[in-house]
Design a protein around this nucleic acid. Structure first.
Lengths: 223, 223
DNA sequence: AGTTTCATTTTGAGAACTCAAAATATAGGG
DNA sequence: CCCTATATTTTGAGTTCTCAAAATGAAACT
């Protein structure tokens, strides 16, 4: 029995929550899942019990949920579809990387395998999407990657933006305007924990200051 | 309140049934609608009553249903999306016209206006899809066209296939193999109503015989 | 330990869609 | 005009997903 869009969304949210927790077997608390999926807490509890029944998650009452192996595989497929679609919308259809998320969110539940593999081929089997997020392979493997963010990387060193850990369109437009999208280079000049800020020197030699929360969402690689 | 996929499917089926009846205000019988949508008769009755409640159809108990102006507009939009998607899958993604129907059937309910208009532009605002079916414009207008089929056109006259009134993949593959897809030329050599057959001379000077039911689904234009 | 606070689960209910089978209406043949 | 065949509608029920609000568990503070 193939999973409904709803089930796919729960699994995807769970997958992403577990990645954020950086722990294979961490339990995601119910409230967090409900929040990520956008439903009331009680709804999440009900759904998770059903998912546990189908063997897609492991559920520990009052503690949280975690994906089973089967659930993780399914979630990886949803993510694969989502990210290939985003890459397709940007590369082939010429849309902006700031606005493709919502479309991909819908399409990910209905594109056939045939179509997804066609996209993958047309794109030359890309390994990351326009936000720098890794694209799982057809058998569910993800090339794992340890990232620094603008909050943790060394100062006065040239770094390249590789990934943005936020899908909010206005935030992405902000990054684009400030020359902070994946591929662009910059240096961190200073951090001020009291002011909660990070000062950057971007490609155009322009100096800008952003908050630490924003800085933590911009992942980079040392050049 | 935007229509669900289910509602869109009912409206689309109704639209196509009315076109087939060649009558603006013909009533589509319940059984036929149920059959087209693929649900039990009672289900169609229930749904149609709800649609009438929302003003999308006019329902006459025991006689049938007909789209309202609002319903027809909505149905035209679904058809527009479906056909643009089919054209996109064939022209841009290089898929076969025999296999795009199922994918389009799913995608038509989730592609955003933004995306559809992008496809339309990439395709150069096409007026027909790969099966020759006309694509409604963004304001819901369809260029109407009176077609002959291989069953009604003059004999011994060169004609061009313009449209195929069936989405079945195996039928489409058959047409392709016999050089009967939209754009190709041929002549009708003879019709035999007793044998229920039509004899054709295709582009490669090959003579083939097909049944009248198949012939009626191949629409043509006199060259 | 007692009590407040917070997250989680349970409960009862509803929306949207579906079916099978019983009841009823319409149309056609005798 | 009655009767039968066929289409349509009604009924009762089930699935999947959702919420609000009450009940309960766990944790944290005094």
């Amino acid at each position: 029995m193939l999973p409904s869009s709803t089930v796919e969304n729960y699994l995807k949210a769970l997958y992403q929550a577990q990645v954020a927790l950086e722990d294979e077997k961490a339990l995601v608390p119910m409230g967090q899942l409900a929040n990520a999926v956008g439903v009331a807490p009680g709804t999440a509890t009900t759904m998770v019990k059903a998912l546990a029944e189908s063997g897609l998650v492991e559920y520990e009452p009052y503690l949280g949920v975690r994906l089973s192996t089967a659930g993780a595989k399914l979630a990886a497929m949803v993510l694969r579809r989502h990210r290939l679609i985003e890459q397709f919308l940007v590369e082939i259809m010429g849309m902006s990387w700031t606005e493709v998320h919502e479309d991909a969110e819908q399409l990910e539940h209905v594109v056939s395998d045939r179509l997804i593999e066609r996209m993958d081929a047309m794109l030359g089997h890309p390994s990351v999407d326009p936000h720098g997020d890794p694209i799982p392979t057809a058998d569910g493997d993800i090339a794992p990657h340890r990232y620094h963010s603008l909050l943790t990387c060394p100062l006065h060193t040239e770094v390249t933006v590789t990934r943005v850990a936020d899908q909010d369109a206005s935030f992405l437009r902000f990054l684009e305007a400030q020359r902070l999208k994946p591929g662009q280079s910059l240096e961190v000049e200073a951090r001020d924990s009291a002011a909660d800020s990070v000062q950057l020197l971007t490609e155009g030699q322009r100096s800008i200051t952003i908050g630490t929360k924003a800085a933590s969402k911009v992942l980079i690689e040392v050049a």
